[in-house]
Amino acid sequence: MREVEAIIERYGAKRRHVIAILQDIQTQFHYLPREALLEVAARVRIPLIDLYSIATFYNCFSLVPRGEHVIRVCLGTACHLKGGTRLVEALERELGVREGEMTPDGQFSFETVRCVGACALAPLVLIDGRYYPKMKQRKLTQVLARLRRARPPAEVTQ
């Protein structure tokens, strides 16, 4: 994979740069492809299991493809009380996928998180790293429609 090679080149094939390398791969592919992990392991000369440990430890890495837009619904205590689960149901209806999955067109993927540290604004939804406070089902539908229109999407920020 040429992209992976370029990313390793940018940081240098050193063990201490592995997380930065993985982050760039994640940004580029929206997930960590298996071949990419194998290549990083071979080039940086670190055991594959160490990479796999890192990739499964941090939430910002995903081993299954994520969509162009990553939607995170907060289900922390405050958001849960304020109806976060209903937002999850609404999203499942709207997107036709379950939590943790990606829409077939690769546009959206949707996951739940525990508390994003802004409980006063509950219930919260994060889309591409942007906070959408006091979310309602209707508002959510509007935001999704806007994102669908705005294709091709802006670069995903984590």
Binding site: P47, L48, I49, D50, Y52, S53, T56, F57
Partner: peptide, 9 residues
């Protein structure tokens, strides 16, 4: 061998 390790957290 480095065959096994911890995953997830």
């Amino acid at each position: 061998a480095h065959a096994i390790g911890f995953v997830n957290r």
